[in-house]
């Protein structure tokens, strides 16, 4: 032990950790992620049938999916879906809702200001910061590159 460097120990440790079951995990992520998108497609088609236009349907679908994600989180179901499906539950927009609702519920005991409201964005905050931030950059770059035309 004493004659091992940090690096050697970390290499040794890596070999001691069993490999994750890539295939099984991927299949589960595929099924869960695919199913959520399938539900999204059903919602989307339904909204079209109600006569909404493309823009309204996109926003409406997102709102309904966020609602479903929030509801399943509140009922204590989404964490189980996440445990089963991994990235399949995290990557769809329902996972974004889960990442907002879960800390909001968790920190209720710390009050409605610094608990619920402040902690809501512990996980979703970065999504908004990088999402909005990068979209502004894209918009500005577009202006720069098209300025000469």
């Amino acid at each position: 032990m004493d004659n091992m460097t940090n690096k050697e120990y970390q290499e040794y440790l890596k070999r001691k950790i069993p490999k994750p079951d890539y295939l099984n995990n991927s299949i589960r992520a595929f099924i869960v992620g695919g199913t959520i998108c399938l539900i999204g497609q059903i919602v989307r088609n339904m909204l079209f049938r109600f006569g909404f236009n493309e823009k309204e349907v996109v926003t409406g679908t997102a709102i309904i999916m966020v609602f479903l994600g929030s509801l399943l989180t509140g009922l204590g179901i989404y964490d189980k879906i996440g445990k089963f499906g991994g990235a399949g539950a995290a990557i769809p927009i329902t996972g974004f809702a889960n990442s907002i609702v879960a800390p909001a519920m968790e920190y209720k005991r710390e009050g409605y200001l610094f608990g619920v409201a402040a902690k809501m964005f512990t996980i979703a905050g970065p999504v908004l910061v990088y999402g909005i931030g990068s979209s502004i950059i894209v918009g500005l770059l577009y202006l720069i590159f098209t300025a000469g035309r």
Partner: peptide, 8 residues
């Protein structure tokens, strides 16, 4: 949708 999640 499933494939995007598999990559993740």
């Amino acid at each position: 949708g499933g494939l995007i999640c598999v990559v993740g």
